[in-house]
């Protein structure tokens, strides 16, 4: 049974697209046929993060409007056989996301994929609501910081009231909290909320903690999902989170400030 997973947050800039790309890649690595769909019409970024921006011909809106077939718009990932990217349009706006058209496409994707990852735009307006409407489960991306936590709280409320599952009185959307850009040093200094604080406020099960890492920026710039960087703490943390989504038990890592090695201190490479 195909699973529709929305990656959402309310607030912008918290790491939704990075997370969507990482999860899609991680699931494909585990032999799940996966497509990652960009709902951020007008601010097309997912294809950049996935490194396929030069291969976009048709997009989500073309397919909604019947100008192109789904197969023409899906871009196959060069690294993984069972990973596809469904890019959005840069020239249109969110109003082009018509509910019936999106429903038709999601249904069609469900025929051939195991996982449909929906990368939501920021905000709580039409774009974000359309992205979460069809979800079976949700990954709520949150930074350990008050405004992000509050926006996530709002989005969780919308998942419980505005999703198709809520409207049809079905089993509620499964919620997963993903803490991103987590800096153990800053938490230790009291500059960021602790994991416990965030869990307490949101009361949603924790799927993972992604440490703040410069490797994320590097990965974005090179169009390589950070989960493929097995040296990077962020990449490894995403790998753990994907495993947990599939039901594995993995211990939380990167919760404590890293000790600087003697080598790094001597050579000033910290």
């Amino acid at each position: 049974m195909a699973q529709v997973v929305v990656v959402t947050s309310g607030k912008g800039g918290v790491g939704k697209t990075t997370t969507a790309a990482a999860f899609a890649t991680g699931l494909a690595q585990r032999d799940k046929k996966t497509v990652v769909v960009d709902f951020d019409v007008g601010l097309r970024n997912l294809d950049l993060i996935m490194g396929c921006e030069r291969r976009v011909v048709f997009d989500f809106i073309n397919v909604i409007n019947g100008d192109a077939k789904l197969n023409q718009a899906l871009i196959r990932d060069k690294r993984l056989d069972n990973l596809y990217v469904f890019p959005t349009s840069q020239t249109r706006d969110k109003d082009a996301l018509k509910r019936e058209g999106v429903a038709r496409i999601i249904d069609e994707l469900k025929q051939s994929f195991d996982y449909i990852i929906c990368d939501s735009p920021a905000g709580i307006e039409h774009g974000a609501l359309t992205a979460l409407y069809f979800a079976d489960s949700a990954i709520i991306v949150t930074n350990p910081e008050v405004s992000s936590v509050r926006d996530s709280d709002r989005i969780i409320g919308l998942l419980a009231s505005k999703s198709r599952r809520a409207e049809r009185n079905e089993k509620p959307v499964a919620e997963h909290l993903l803490l991103t850009r987590y800096s153990a040093e800053r938490v230790a200094r009291g500059e960021m909320l602790t994991v416990e604080d965030v869990k307490e406020i949101l009361s949603v099960p924790l799927l993972g903690i992604i440490p703040e890492s410069e490797t994320v920026l590097r990965a974005s710039n090179t169009g390589t999902p950070v989960i493929l960087d097995t040296e990077s703490p962020a990449g490894r943390a995403y790998d753990d989170a994907v495993a947990r989504l599939l039901g594995e038990t993995r211990e939380l890592r990167f919760l404590r400030p890293e000790r600087r090695s003697l080598f790094r201190t001597i050579f000033g490479r910290a």
Partner: peptide, 8 residues
């Protein structure tokens, strides 16, 4: 019985 979320 559920948490009352922001904006509700």
């Amino acid at each position: 019985t559920e948490p009352v979320r922001s904006g509700t």
